[in-house]
Design a protein around this nucleic acid. Structure first.
Lengths: 159, 159
DNA sequence: TTTCTTGTTAGCACAAATTGCAGATTAGGA
DNA sequence: TCCTAATCTGCAATTTGTGCTAACAAGAAA
């Protein structure tokens, strides 16, 4: 996603208005690598602008996605997450805490769908699942099984 | 997912009961490669067993997932989809009609997360996005842009 | 075959995430 | 400053899925 200033220019060039709400959301999403949900972003925004509407957050996120300034990420767990990172990258999900991290991946160009006919592929997405180090630690302590998943991801992790 | 007969045996061995509802759902999911949503499966089941409850469909799908007999797939578009294919495979999504197809992929073992520390990866999932041949055709006819997405996937396709 | 116990089902209420709508508000040009 | 179209807010509605419970029915035991 571009800088707040660049986005403002883009918006103006399209006859869209620059409102305080949009400016705030531009700031909050710019270089945000936490993959927030709409609700999470709403919470952050509310702290700085009490009274801002959740509806406005959804609206703005949808606009930015239409403009190609951010991506939706759906990896199960209920809510859609938003990713302003426009580089060619992929995701790692901790099956314990639900945290999502960006990763660059080597070798995606060599991926070959073996039995795919009559289909024009335009994009490839890779999702790694595993356990982050902090969950690994708390797991060792509590002696939890490697298959125990966080409530957030329980039976929701997809391949 | 195992055959309906094998599943019945598995269920019995665990003290679970074999009900007509379960038998029907076992049949409908066995070797089903359409990746249905719970609602879609409910519709199919209702045709053969009027009165079956959507609640029962959800319940049975969750059971089968707990038993490791099927996977959940979340690729955006709202509803979770179910996949009884237990082979090591991946998915292709048509961004136009939302159809999901199974594919085997060569080269996944060579995928290397480049900037990933403190994380133990246990699984890798690959999703290809593109356009299936039938959508390609109807697209040529109507002259639709390559970015027009189906309502089902509109602004919901994740990487 | 009848009985009994316990797992299941159906159905509805409820919850979470997201969108539709409409009236009140405001950015930004005239 | 004024005007108008774009935007925002708040709420209703929608979609997807789960919690709960009374009615029901497998399947073991008698």
């Amino acid at each position: 996603m571009q800088s707040p200033a660049a986005l403002a220019a883009l918006y103006r060039s399209q006859g869209r208005k620059i409102t305080p709400q949009r400016q705030l959301l531009f700031q909050l999403m710019h270089e945000n690598d936490r993959h927030p949900t709409a609700e999470a972003l709403f919470a952050e925004a509310s702290a700085q602008m009490p009274g801002i509407s959740l509806r406005t957050v959804y609206q703005t996120l949808n606009e930015l996605a239409e403009l190609g300034e951010l991506q939706f990420i759906d990896i199960g767990g209920g809510a859609t997450r938003f990713d302003p990172n426009l580089e060619d990258h992929h995701h790692v999900v901790c099956t314990d805490c639900g945290q999502i991290r960006d990763v660059h991946v080597k070798g995606t160009a060599a991926l070959r769908p073996l039995d795919l006919e009559d289909f024009t592929v335009s994009e490839v997405g890779v999702v790694f699942q595993g356990v982050c180090s902090s969950c690994e630690k708390s797991r060792a302590k509590t002696g939890r099984s490697a298959h125990a998943k966080s409530p957030a991801l329980q039976a929701k992790v997809s391949k």
